[in-house]
Amino acid sequence: MAYYEAICFWLSLVLYALASGGNIYALVFRNQKVVPKLLVLITVGFVVHSGAIAARYVAQGHMPWSADYENGLMGGWFIILCTLYVAWRQKPLRVLSVATVPTAMLIMGYGVMRNPTLAPMAATLKSFWLAIHVYFAWLSFGAYVLAMAAGVIYLLKERAVRERGQAPAEPVPGRFDDISPERLDELMFRYLVFGFITNAIMIAAGSIWAKDLWGSYWSWDPVETWSLISWLMYGAAIHLRVTMGWRGTRFSWLMIGALITVLINLFGVAVLMKTTVHVFRFS
């Protein structure tokens, strides 16, 4: 890690941690008044986080998009970016930060424990198609995290509704009261759809890149295999909703569970598989 990068990285983690603590407070004590202040904290954290990326860029001379630490750094950044974007577009969606910020912290924390050393850009990573591939991977990842967060809020809200014996469509005072369960349910689908389309672009671009790098579009390499698993999983989820009518609680659990496939895609391939074939002996 570069000097300023390390400072910014840890500072952003602290700010995100404070915001997450505040979110838990708001949740437990049913005090939503603090939520706008927490959003300010997250925004400051995001600016500092961007500083960490900029410092790394300056130190290395290329965008950080390889290996676990950089996956965590950029993945976390995209998650927060998506969170802030939806919160800016629609105030009630600020509440999604309850689940998205801890997810970003988790992957950043995991990444930093692995390999934050600075390295020049390997020739294998210099490709237009790879840039498209990585960019859309982050977008889809951010959208899937939002879908998961909407699922978490849906479940919390549903429990609150059950406790109070109110009809599900009615707002629950003190608990995310400006967003109805029906909206949350549809938001899950909307984020899922965005993630699914960007994920499809990511797979297509990755496969065109693979042809230039390894000579074939698809070789069932663990990385390729798992990204297909993850896409098919979300495809199955779309089917379950569109053709089998899955909604609400079941669909929320599906969105939370399906995110595991994405996390494995991000880190697990390196952890679970000791070898992926696509390495140059020379490199």
């Binding site: 798992w226 698993i229 098919l232 999983m233 199955a236 089917h239 679970l272």
Partner: peptide
């Protein structure tokens, strides 16, 4: 749905 789930299972074995 079952076909997609079965393909998922097969790919997981391959993974």
């Amino acid at each position: 749905i079952w076909l997609i789930v079965s393909l998922l299972a097969v790919f997981s074995i391959g993974f």
